[in-house]
């Protein structure tokens, strides 16, 4: 240990990390209580990799796969929802439990409140319909287009799925090509395959 005061002043004190963690947790609690937060988030380990879960006061606003780049997703939430964003808090604990149950095959749908503000217009219409595709079954992009009231908007259905802010919860993985091939997936095709296999097996 140095006895140079300049150096000592800038060194971490013992127990500083624990202290900062406690201060951070208290900050999230106080900020939530006075509604100063736009978004809170947490990570969840899952069979399809770490998931970023983000919520506003109204509900879950974003679920993101690792390949979407969690840092970029948070930056984008800062612009689109608001930058008063903190990690932690209890708001996302119910969703984390429901997702654990889903991946364990014990749950087929989600009961947490959703905040769909990141989707608008036709994309929002598509997402609303996706929630009606039953667990374990699939629809083609064309069928979704018909069900969403625009039979010719097959490509727009594809982009609605590709920009789904709430994958897994809003089950865009249940949309496949009419020839039975998988089509695309914002979480990567192996993830789509895995989710469909999970639902078939349960």
């Amino acid at each position: 240990m140095s006895d140079n005061p300049i150096q000592l002043l800038t060194e971490p004190a013992s127990g500083e990390d624990e202290r900062l963690a406690a201060l951070h947790a208290a900050l999230v609690t106080r900020a939530s209580a006075e509604s100063s937060l736009d978004v809170t988030y947490r990570l969840l380990d899952s069979p399809v990799g770490p998931l970023l879960l983000a919520a506003t006061e109204n509900g879950v606003v974003r679920v993101a796969f690792e390949i979407e780049d969690h840092d970029r997703v948070l930056e984008s939430l800062g612009s689109s929802v608001g930058s008063r964003i903190l990690r932690g808090g209890v708001r996302l604990d119910p969703l984390a439990r429901e997702l654990d149950d889903y991946f364990a095959g014990r749950r087929q749908g989600f009961d947490v409140p959703l905040d769909l503000r990141l989707a608008r217009g036709f994309r929002l219409t598509v997402l609303r319909h996706l929630g009606e595709i039953p667990y374990g079954s699939t629809e083609s992009y064309g069928e979704v287009a018909v069900a969403s009231g625009s039979p010719r908007a097959v490509r727009a259905v594809g982009s609605a799925c590709a920009t789904n802010p709430l994958p897994i919860i809003v089950p865009c993985h249940r949309v496949v090509r009419s020839d039975g091939s998988l089509g695309g997936y914002l979480g990567g095709l192996p993830t789509k395959k895995r989710l469909l296999a999970l639902e078939r097996a349960a």
């Binding site: 900062l20 201060l23 951070h24 900050l27 978004v39 988030y41 948070l74 930056e75 939430l77 800062g78 612009s79 930058s83 008063r84 964003i85 903190l86 990690r87």
Partner: peptide, 12 residues
């Protein structure tokens, strides 16, 4: 526009 969490992480 950056998430406030970054400010806490970097400067806390």
């Amino acid at each position: 526009k950056r998430p406030f969490e970054q400010a806490v992480t970097e400067h806390g």
